[in-house]
Nucleic acid binder design. Sequence first.
RNA 1: GUCCCGGUAGCUCAGUUGGAUAGAGCGGCCGCCUUCUAAGCGGCAGGUCGGGCGUUCGAAUCGCCCCCGGGACGCCA
Length: 626
Amino acid sequence: MPAAASHQQSFDPVQILHDRFAAAIAAAFPEHAGGAADPVITPSKNPKFGDFQANGAMPLGKLIGRSPREAAAAIVKSVDLGDIAEPLSDASIAGPGFINITLKNTALARLLDRLDSTALGLDPVHGAEKQTIVVDLCGVNLAKQMHVGHLRAVIIGDAVARVFERMGHKVIRQNHVGDWGLNIAMVTAKLIELEKRGEKIDKLDLDRLEKLYKAAQKECSADERGLAMVEKYNLGPKALAEIGTQVHEAREHLAGAKNTLVKLQAHDPATVAVWKRIADLTMDACLATCKRLGADVTAEHSAGESSYAEELAPLVADLVARGITQESEGALVIRVEGFAEPCIIRKSDGGFLYATTDLAGIRRRVQRFGADRVVYCVDARQGLHFRLVFAAAHRAGFDVAPGHASPSSLEHAAFGMVLGQDGKPYKTRSGENVKLSDLLDEAVERAAAAVAGKNPDLSAEERTRIADAVGIAAIKYVDLSNDRIKDYVFDFDRMLAFEGNTGPYLLYALVRIRSIFRKAGSGMSALRADAPAAITIATPEEKTLALTLLRYPGVVRGVAASLEPHRLCQYLFDLAGAFSSFFTNCPVLQAHDEATKRSRLRLCAITERVLADGLSMLGIPTLDRM
RNA sequence: GUCCCGGUAGCUCAGUUGGAUAGAGCGGCCGCCUUCUAAGCGGCAGGUCGGGCGUUCGAAUCGCCCCCGGGACGCCA
């Protein structure tokens, strides 16, 4: 196989046309050959304007002080489209200076042939293009169930990581687990207390643990304001006694928790043992849910805050020594240009904060792991926090990898909230967070009912398997197909409707293709690698399908650059639609002649591979039947 | 108060570097299964792209000012 670089571009019509037109502009206007004149090649929206259009003549006309149509005429005259497209003429120029281009069907066939033979246009990056990319995802906390708030951090993070992996980058997933600090010490203290009272904690489950966590939080939270009010307004000895008791007990609990934190930090074996039990219990449940979701998040990706605990004091000391920090109201902060708020890295009581840990995280990821990019798949509400931390890390020089001249890229792939039908954050009727496992259960249950209705002939075992795949696909796809930054409304009926831009629709499109191959039998010889069938593009449906297939590599690169998986979803939906039209209008196995049948089989095969490949990047497993 | 993000068809959402008549799906209406899975395909109806001003040959897209909704704003994470 030829080296990727030049070969890789040679099936992308946009790239080819860009090169041809850039050459034509350089030839026609040598004085502007510096690259300022972009041909601006885009797919045409309306078929009557051809397949592609070159829109560069308008800005070029302005640049050279002639009318856009004149510029277009000069470009048309000098461009050499060879056997790629139909010859251009003055009739190809429309409106203010659009140049309409229609590809030759033979060229489409040739490009598809190349796409088919080169890892679907995505040969692994190599050399300087290959990056090390850290993807921060999942982000669970100890002693808490995964709930709907974690859904996007897992699904989007996993998809983004898969896209990078597919492109050949080195990806390091990091599940930044909230497993340290006073809150965790509180629940640890609570457990120790219970055990002292003789309660068994070995058989604890996560539900019970979460209740204990909330109870511990409450116990440690003193009503200081209430006490102040009682004292200020002299509300009487009874009120004073009541609230005084509450405050006194809370202060004691808090002191106990702080003491527990000190013991944890000092690696006291008994305390650490209890903490470890909490950690194991939580992480087992978390990783099980991730596995069920088909997300590649495992124990080796865990990087808890506890793993940074020993680094924080030296890190802060280093920053102080380098004069990057300053004191402010008793706290230690890093001032960042353009922000009124400072980045606080040490509290006035000497404790560290999540910004401190995040700074340590950036330093580890860039300087130890060698990350060229660090991508945080975290809720949009943390936007300000990340901007501060990124800027602080930059001031500290933590974002420059060893041997690198320029800083690595720190990116917050922020996502919006999951809303209920009332437009407010998605909760249970009683106002609790919805457990992720319950959400998955319900999706699978609903999918099972739908599958049973649509295809009663399946065995119970197969139906279960399909329902599981469809239910999970529905949830993941709806999350990924919405613009990341926006909130979206969670609606089981819509995502499982099997119509429109949904996971089930895409799975179905793929199933229909695979069904053809099951029935093809000896026709499979059309796909033999040593003698593949010749592709012929004859019908409008074949042409649309071909044009859509050829967009694939560019779409994937766009997703990697923008961190927006919904572009891939939109593309796969387009492709599934193009295939469905083809499927309806172009008989494959019943084609009029053998050559057409073989050509169409190969179109099916390429579509099948692209759909499956795209879905695999979304972390959605496919089915053979449904 | 300051900052960030949204506002596109009745509903849910796309809209690439500014490009021609703004697109899907659902819902409504009308067609298409003797033939590869109709969970599909084709068509019709449905829009002051929140409002205004500006930049431009050209604005849903860029700039400024408003309106509405959400979010974040020093020692929680």
